[in-house]
Design a protein around this nucleic acid. Structure first.
Length: 422
RNA sequence: GGAGGGGUCGCAUAGUGGUCUAGUGCGCCCGCCUGCUAAGCGGGUUCCGGGGUAACUCGGUCGAGGGUUCAAAUCCCUCCCCCUCCGCCA
C-alpha cells in the first residue's frame, strides 16, 4: 500500500496513475478519513492524558474526600474516551480497508494504454525455428511420446488437471532442477516454502482482498493455497526489522501454485497451458530503494538466461499501464515462442513493487544500528513457470516423427538426448 | 488428539491493582578516567502514531483481541504461538 503521507502530498499523481491503470480507488474518501482520524485522535489523546494524570494523583492521594470526587470525575472522562475511541476505531478500520484498495504508483517509463494490446515489445531474442513439416501442438506431441494424459487428470480432479508421466514428467523435473541450479549459482538463496499460508499473509502480499475469487482455501482452517511463491517470500520477513548490512537479499524457490482461474474460464482450454495447479521457480529480492531499478534489470536478465541456455526463442514486453499488476510499479513479461500452437507463451513476469508490499507486510530495515527504520523495496520474477516451459521445449524441439530433442543444457539432468515417439 | 509449562524493552530475567516514568544483569552506543588494554565511573539503548520550524511534548505498545476498574504487565474471557510428556504418524 501507499503511505497516507505520500497520498496526501501527491494526490494528483496517485489519481492519475489509478486512471492510467483503468482502475478505481477511493482517494478522496481516504483523504477525508485521514483528516477525521487526526481530529478525533487529538481529542481522545488529550482526554487520556488528563485521565492518566488524575489517576496518578488518585494513587498518591491520602485525602479520601478529594479522591472520591476525582474518581467520579474520571468516570465521566472514561465514558467520553470510550465513545471517541469507538469512533476512532471505525474511522481507522475504514481507512485501512480503503488504503488496501489503492494500487501502486506507476513508474514514469511505463507505456500508457488501456489493455494488453498496448504492451511494448522491447526485445525479441533467438530465431523462430523453421520446420519442413507442420509443427504439432504439445497435446499431440504429448500423446505421441506417451507422456501426457489429460483425460485421466480430468477423471481424477476435473477439467484443467492432467498428469505427466515418463519422459515428460522427467523433463519438467529436469527443468526445475536446472533453473534452481542456475539461479543458485548466480547467488540466489534456495528456499523451501510453505504451500499454504494464513489469511493475514495473503493480505500482506496484496492478494487479498482483491483476488479472493482466484484462491483456494481450506474450509475449516486458516489456510490459503499459494497462487505463487511470491506470496510466501513477501511474508518471510513480515513484521520484522532487517538489521544493517543484510540487503540486498536474493531468494529462489520452487513451489506448486494453485489458482482457481475463474477469471479466465473458457480461455486456453486446450492442452496444459493453464491449469489449476502448476509448478513454478520464483526469484525474489529485498533491497534498498536506490537499488531496485538495477535489481529489476538484473532479474529480467536472469530470467532471460533460461530460454537462452535452452535455445528457445523469446521476447520481452514492457507491460502498459492498463495491464500491469496491482502491486507493481513496473513489469516486464517474458514470452517464449510455441510453434505448435503458434503463440507466445508467458513464462515470467518481473516486477518492481517498490515499498508497496513492505509497507503492507510491515517489513522495515536499517542502514545502521542507530539509523531510523525505512521500508525496503521488493521485487519478484518467475524463473520460469512450468509447465509452459515444458510446452516450449516440446514444440520447439519436436521432430517430424513426433520425437522430441532434449536441449543440451538439460541432457545432464535427463541422461538422454531425445524423447522418442512410441 | 490428551496432560502440563511458558510468551515482559537485542539476549537473560524481576515484577499478583497505584512511586512501573517496566527494575536488574549481559550486550551495544556515547562520555569520563587511563602509557595501551581490561576494570571502574556517569549517561544512553523497543517500536508505532499525533502536535510542533525546533528544543520538545502527548498517546499507545509487556504474544493478539476483548472485558472489569478512576487506574491493568498484574484480575476475567476468547484466540495465537512455543516447549515438555503421552498417543498417532510420512
Amino acid at each position: 500500500m501507499l503511505s497516507l503521507q505520500y497520498i496526501r502530498e501527491n494526490v494528483d499523481r496517485v489519481k492519475r496513475d489509478v486512471l492510467l491503470r483503468n482502475a478505481t480507488a477511493p482517494i478522496d474518501r481516504i483523504l477525508q478519513l485521514d483528516e477525521e482520524r487526526r481530529e478525533v485522535l487529538q481529542q481522545v489523546e488529550a482526554l487520556r492524558a488528563r485521565r492518566n494524570a488524575a489517576s496518578k494523583a488518585i494513587g498518591a492521594s491520602k485525602d479520601a474526600a478529594g479522591r472520591d470526587e476525582r474518581i467520579a470525575e474520571m468516570r465521566v472522562v472514561g465514558d467520553e474516551i470510550n465513545q471517541l475511541d469507538a469512533r476512532l476505531k471505525g474511522v481507522e478500520t475504514e481507512l485501512q480497508a480503503k488504503l488496501y484498495e489503492v494500487p501502486n504508483i506507476l513508474d514514469p517509463s511505463v507505456p500508457r494504454g488501456p489493455d494488453e494490446t498496448s504492451n511494448e515489445v522491447v526485445a525479441v531474442v533467438g530465431s523462430i525455428p523453421e520446420f519442413s513439416f507442420a509443427p504439432r501442438p504439445h497435446w499431440e506431441l504429448g500423446e505421441l511420446v506417451n507422456g501426457l494424459d489429460i483425460e485421466r487428470g480430468a477423471k481424477m480432479s476435473g477439467s484443467r488437471f492432467y498428469t505427466l508421466r515418463g519422459p515428460l514428467a522427467k523433463l519438467q523435473r529436469a527443468l526445475i532442477q536446472f533453473m534452481l541450479d542456475e539461479h543458485s549459482k548466480a547467488g540466489f538463496t534456495e528456499s523451501y516454502l510453505p504451500y499454504m499460508l494464513s489469511e493475514a499473509s495473503l493480505y500482506a502480499a496484496g492478494q487479498l482482498p482483491k483476488f479472493r475469487d482466484n484462491l483456494y482455501r481450506d474450509a475449516e482452517e486458516d489456510y490459503f493455497f499459494i497462487p505463487t511463491a511470491e506470496v510466501a517470500f513477501v511474508n518471510l520477513y513480515r513484521d520484522e526489522i532487517i538489521p544493517p548490512g543484510q540487503l540486498p537479499m536474493r531468494f529462489v524457490g520452487h513451489t506448486p501454485c494453485f489458482r482457481r482461474e475463474k477469471m479466465s474460464a473458457g480461455r486456453d482450454v486446450r492442452g496444459i497451458k493453464r491449469g489449476h495447479q502448476f509448478e513454478k521457480v520464483e526469484m525474489f529480492v529485498y533491497c534498498e530503494p536506490e537499488q531496485s531499478g538495477e535489481e529489476l534489470e538484473a532479474l529480467l536478465v536472469r530470467a532471460c538466461s533460461i530460454p537462452e541456455k535452452l535455445g528457445l526463442p523469446y521476447r520481452v514486453l514492457a507491460l502498459c499501464s492498463g495491464d500491469i499488476g496491482f502491486n507493481s510499479t513496473k513489469t516486464f513479461d517474458l514470452e517464449i515462442w510455441a510453434p505448435g500452437q503458434g503463440e507466445w507463451l508467458e513464462v515470467s513476469s518481473a516486477s518492481n513493487c517498490l515499498d508497496f508490499q513492505a509497507r503492507r507486510a510491515n517489513i522495515r530495515y536499517r542502514t545502521a544500528a542507530d539509523a531510523p527504520t525505512a521500508y525496503p523495496h521488493m521485487l519478484n520474477a518467475s524463473g520460469l513457470a512450468l509447465p509452459r516451459t515444458v510446452i516450449a521445449v516440446m514444440e520447439n524441439y519436436q521432430r517430424e516423427d513426433g520425437s522430441i530433442g532434449v536441449p543440451e543444457a538439460l541432457q545432464p539432468y535427463m541422461g538422454i538426448d531425445v524423447i522418442p515417439a512410441v
